[in-house]
Amino acid sequence: MSLKELNALAANRSARRRSGGKADTRDNRAALGFLSPWMLGIVGITLGPLLYSLYLSFTNYNLLQSPSWVGLDNYERMFGDERLHQALKVTFTYVIVSVPLQLAVALGLALALDRGMRGLAFYRSAFYLPSLLGGSVAIAVLWRLVFGASGLFNVILGLIGIESSQSWISNPDTALWTIILLHVWTFGSPMVIFLAGLRQIPRAYYEAAATDGANVWWRFRHITMPLLTPIVFFNVVLAIINSFSNFTQAYVVSGGTGGPADSTLFYTLYLYQEGFGNFRMGYAAAMAWLLVLIIGAVTAINFWLSKRWVHYDD
């Protein structure tokens, strides 16, 4: 389709819109028709349960009997709940440490891969693989073995001369860090997005800068980074939300306990324990809403801050 044709099409469409013709209404109806399965899904599977959980958060609901209204009791209880505070501490530590680490690794590798090396497709797939596997139960189980007392990690430490027989996964001081490492390892999806972003930066900029004598660092600092900021922002927002809602890794690595001694008690894991283990689904629903508020607030702050550092080239 040539540009001319496209223009004609656009002109035609806007003409129709202005006149509010019948064809336009028909189009809208058809659109709604095609969208309806998706809308039904949103309303029935997402929105309905979402609103129901909001209702449940104001009730005492033990799963087995009908919920009874208790007003703000569940939310008030949060202030005195030390395990909730521990869960928040664990989760925030996890987010604050693992998000920058993961994105740094992803960006670093994306930059390395962006040099148009041979076999790029292979490396890209190889590095992306952990992202597909990292959230799986099998990898979490494997992680237990790797960081166990007689695990691969200690063997490697032994090879480089550090004797260690401690179980990293079962020690409250190190357990969370093994899960952070697992998360960092799944750098594939932000890496692929970074790669796509790097590809969009016009080569001409670099050529011009090189002609002017800019070195590699200067080019990265003043061309790559500014032009990549929208992509960085996109990745930051996504990674933060993903990290806040991490469940599988925490559940499997600690066997569902959040142990040892609550050192890996992730927010969602505690929520699950309260809801399904302790029959306090009302409280669990309130916790879910607190998490929604936290994620919402953090995301809002992100968008607000983005005005200061994200450059859109338009």
Partner: peptide
């Protein structure tokens, strides 16, 4: 859009 859908996915069962 991505943020919203992830946020929703986090709390919908």
């Amino acid at each position: 859009v991505a943020a919203a859908s992830l946020g929703l996915a986090a709390c919908s069962s």
